[in-house]
């Protein structure tokens, strides 16, 4: 008796669709990605270590991860605020604002890059007011943070928004009837409920920012050691036909991506556990196909 890998179902097409899914996934994603590791394994360990610990590479990590962290933190704070305002308050043009939040998902990064550079360069709409204050926005680390904030803007808003919408007003009213003031209600009732979602959004924004290239190259100025992000370093090495060096840095980035992907998955599990009571109920109403059907 073989181990059953799949529950028997009356719906047809499992073999066909899963077979196609797996082949396509392998062909487009898995085999190419493993080729990177294969290529990296042809490099000796010392050479590999030299490449990835080179001062210029380390500086690029510092800039990429540092700027991404700052941008993700900005998005965490303002994303919470935007989500709160969009869910709880009404103001003219709210629907328009709500749908525009997704703009960074849809706008090509190169377009965002040249637009932000134009705004924040010394003659730009905002840059001209920053320059007299001694703040250089474009062609500086600050510019990188600005671009990465734009790129990661929708994540926290979009993860927190549904949780905030589902939050029962009853609970807040109950807390209030027990004598809590508005600030206490926020920190003790609302914040714990939206925290997992907010952290998921934060990590997603961070992960996206770390790998971002298009919007940053225009505004950063691309000075080695100062404003050179890691993806750009990979391109530089490729332009110099240093495939081994590019691969080594790419492996560092891939490992970082996988770690972040794992973190996001765990965070999502955590946040769905927080609302299991409700989601289970929904599952029953929707006739969740994942539940065995003996429940009568």
């Amino acid at each position: 008796m073989a181990i059953t890998l799949k529950k028997r179902s009356i719906l047809p097409g499992f073999g066909l669709t899963l077979g196609f899914t797996l082949s396509y996934l392998a062909l487009i994603v898995l085999i190419p990605l493993s080729a990177t590791f294969l290529k990296a394994s042809t490099v000796t360990w010392t050479r590999f270590w030299q490449t990835i610990s080179d001062p210029r590479a380390v500086a690029s990590y510092r800039i990429s991860f540092g700027a991404s962290l700052i941008a993700a933190l900005i998005n965490l704070v303002f994303g919470l605020l935007v989500a709160w305002v969009l869910v709880r308050y009404t103001f003219p043009g709210k629907r328009l604002v709500d749908s525009l939040v997704d703009l960074p998902f849809a706008l090509p990064t190169a377009v965002a890059g040249i637009a932000l550079t134009t705004i924040y360069s010394s003659h730009g709409w905002v840059g001209r007011y920053l320059e007299p204050l001694g703040i250089k926005a474009a062609y500086s680390p600050l510019g990188i943070v600005i671009a990465l904030t734009f790129i990661g803007l929708p994540f926290v808003v979009r993860t927190v928004q549904p949780v905030l919408e589902d939050l029962d007003k009853d609970v807040e009213e109950a807390a209030s009837s027990l004598g809590a003031n508005r600030l206490q209600i926020f920190t003790r009732v609302i914040l714990p409920a939206i925290l997992p979602a907010a952290l998921t959004g934060f990590t997603m924004a961070f992960a996206r920012a770390v790998g971002e290239y298009g919007s940053v190259v225009f505004i950063s100025g691309n000075m080695p050691m100062r404003t050179e992000i890691t993806p750009l370093l990979i391109i530089t090495k490729l332009d110099q036909y240093d495939y081994a060096g590019a691969t080594a840095i790419a492996v560092v980035m891939l490992v970082a991506s996988f770690t972040l992907l794992l973190a996001i998955n765990l965070l999502q599990k955590w946040s769905s556990r927080g609302q299991r009571g409700e989601s289970r109920e929904e599952a029953v109403i929707a006739g969740n196909p994942l539940e065995p059907s003996f429940v009568q």
Binding site: R8, I10, S293, F294, V295, Q296
Partner: peptide, 18 residues
């Protein structure tokens, strides 16, 4: 009562369950 197997029997007769 629920859990007595009546729906499962019905679905097996229909061919919706094996």
């Amino acid at each position: 009562p629920s859990g007595s197997g009546k729906t499962t029997l019905l679905r097996i007769i229909a061919g919706l369950e094996f």
